[in-house]
């Protein structure tokens, strides 16, 4: 009972705080083992590892990576995770794979279901990007890498705005807001939705300053009129003012998108976080009930040759 047997078969990656191995359970289920380095050169157990254990232990959902086991061996901490061989970034980049509208709808739906489960448990992911949306062998999309996640704190607590990979960072984070909520994840999903349609990153800023410019060039510069009190945010200064895009401009940019797809994209990328849709509203959107239906996971395109498991 105590000795649940896992085998480590090969090392597939090494990050700053962990080494990842592929392996199998006794029942031949494929798994990934993340061996956390706990050396003295660091400040004890890494914060990312704590967050990953803390939140994955609480979440059990078909669209969130499963933490199967936690064990300590030879003084190291090991996390046993389900094996997920691909990620959405790999599929987006592979131009030989054709995305049908139902495929995009299916991936978006699974991402929203996973994040809805996190949000209803008061957890913000804070690092959603195609690279962190892993794909199981049977086509299910699962949200992974909870190394930056945190629970919704007290209203008077300051949060760090230095979260989320730049291209997927919401305007409130770009402006250095210290109080934000689950809306930062919805923004990221909106940008991923755009990327799935464009097959190229939607807002690829070169640095933090350029990210502001790229974001507002595409979606308009926020003002007091459309986002009350935005000018009070720490980094709101000396920004170029761009008009919000017209519906026609968006239609031109996303030429294959239906009107309902555009409506949902606009709702998820509203500049003012308090007016942005939440995960429930997004899941209930008409886009998911209009034709075509979301592709069943097992019928989604895959890249069989790619074997990948995320490391930090």
């Amino acid at each position: 009972m105590t000795q649940r047997k896992y085998t480590k078969e090969k090392k597939v990656g090494e990050g700053t705080y962990a080494v990842v191995y592929l392996g199998k359970t006794e029942k031949s289920r494929q798994i990934a083992i993340k061996e956390i380095k706990t050396g003295l050169f660091k400040d004890g157990l890494d914060m990312s590892a704590i967050r990953e254990v803390k939140y994955l232990q609480e979440l059990r959902h078909e669209n969130v990576i499963e933490l199967i086991d936690v064990f300590s061996n030879d003084g190291n901490l090991n996390l046993v995770l389900e094996f997920l061989p691909a990620d959405l970034e790999v599929l987006i980049k592979d131009q030989s794979i054709i995305f049908k509208p139902g495929d995009i709808k299916s991936w978006l739906l699974m991402t929203l279901r996973g994040i809805h489960h996190c949000h209803r448990n008061f957890i913000i992911h804070r690092d959603l990007k195609p690279n962190n949306l892993l794909i199981s062998p049977d086509g299910y999309l699962k949200i992974a890498d909870f190394g930056l996640a945190r629970s919704l704190g007290n209203a008077n607590e300051d949060l760090s705005s230095n979260v989320v990979t730049r291209w997927y960072r919401s305007p409130e984070l770009l402006f250095g807001a210290k109080h934000y909520d689950t809306a930062v994840d919805i923004w990221s999903i909106g940008i991923i939705f755009a990327e799935l349609m464009l097959r190229t990153p939607y807002l690829p800023g070169q640095d933090d300053i350029n990210q502001l410019d790229v974001t507002f060039r595409a979606l308009g510069t926020p003002t007091e009129a459309n986002w009350p009190n935005v000018t009070a945010l720490p980094l709101y200064n000396a920004i170029n003012v761009y008009a919000p895009p017209s519906r026609q401009e968006l239609r031109n940019r996303f030429s294959a998108a239906t009107e309902k797809a555009l409506d949902l994209l606009i709702a998820m990328t509203v500049l003012d976080p308090s007016k942005r849709c939440n995960s429930t509203q997004a899941l209930m959107d008409d886009f998911f009930t209009e034709s075509p239906p979301p592709t069943r996971p097992e019928n989604l395109p895959s890249k069989n040759t790619n074997k990948k498991q995320k490391t930090e």
Binding site: M1, T2, Q3, R4, Q57, D69, V70, F71, S72, N73, D74, G75
Partner: peptide, 20 residues
Amino acid sequence: ISSKGTSRFINKRKRLLEEI
């Protein structure tokens, strides 16, 4: 045990019962 062998940690009793 954890420095020489293996210590396994389970956070929910339900999980253990499932395995049994």
